[in-house]
Design a protein around this nucleic acid. Structure first.
Lengths: 158, 158
DNA sequence: GTGACTGCAAATCGTTTGCAAAGCT
DNA sequence: AGCTTTGCAAACGATTTGCAGTCAC
């Protein structure tokens, strides 16, 4: 998975990534006359410091000790999606899992139906074919969801 | 979309397709000690005679005059998915739309975010690349969801 | 007849919203 | 002060389940 290691990890996040994320967030907030509150910061920090695809429940649980309510988590996630910092994938039972996506090239997801692990996968070739074919049909694609469900390497063995 | 016209329409369904669907359904029911009731038949007939991707609400509404409850529609759809006769796609707000899929080659969906229309699309080349790459990663794909959201030809003009 | 099936209503799950209190600026 | 924001609880929409009566086999 070396080729997917373009997202700064916790450590190198301090080297600029988090700052760039916050820059975008601040700009978005300012433009809409909104505020950067401690709650929003806490949620975003938690996401930045995680390398997993987080469910709303994961985030809410982590926020509970700080007194954050689920509603705030939902509201913040929606806001983060609106300004393009965050995306979501759905797992096989339809629950959403969120990821910070600034500056990350588009990628698709391989979702393990046994352990729930989500592996990321870049397929530029595939996206190209997709775009071209859509256009041929007169369809103007805006976004897509390409989620592949199956067994990951580890779960196959079991 | 000529290439997608392999699914028997209402008229030629009488020429065998519906029968084959029922054969599978009957076998599944028998194996599990379940029964072919008028309700189940009505729902399946309705789906067979429609060429659209139907929402649960479409089906329930059509069944209401016959006294069917929503729960039965849900239960039957789940059962039809379990025996592989029916699949679902989700629209952009997460609602499910169902299609009868027996003997139909796998296809993906172009979903219009303006009018909700769903166009089907076969991409054997793309599926091949996908499978191969998954395997390279040690991932055993079982099914996937590839839904592309955008504007259809008609809605682009507006 | 017996066990599966149905409709209904109540329950659940994830998510959204209304509101009064609290926080920024 | 005047706005946004918050937590809570209630409201929501889609789906599920429990149950007493009904029906297919």
């Amino acid at each position: 998975m070396k080729e997917l290691d373009y997202r700064p990890s916790k450590t190198n996040a301090q080297g600029g990534y988090a700052e760039r994320v916050y820059e975008v967030f601040r700009k978005h907030l300012a433009q809409s006359g909104l505020r950067l509150t401690s709650q929003r910061r806490r949620i975003l920090d938690f996401m930045l410091n995680s390398d997993r695809h987080l469910g709303q429940e994961d985030i809410s649980q982590a926020m509970r000790p700080h007194g954050l309510g689920r509603a705030t988590v939902f509201r913040t996630l929606k806001m983060l999606e609106e300004c393009g910092l965050v995306n979501h994938v759905s797992d096989e039972s339809g629950r959403r899992r969120f990821e910070v996506n600034l500056e990350r090239p588009h990628h698709d997801h391989l979702i393990c139906i046994s352990c729930g692990r989500i592996q990321e996968m870049r397929w530029p070739k595939l996206e190209k074919i997709q775009e071209d074919t859509c256009r041929k049909f007169g369809f103007a694609p805006q976004w897509h969801r390409h989620e592949i469900f199956g067994l990951c390497r580890d779960c196959r063995k079991t």
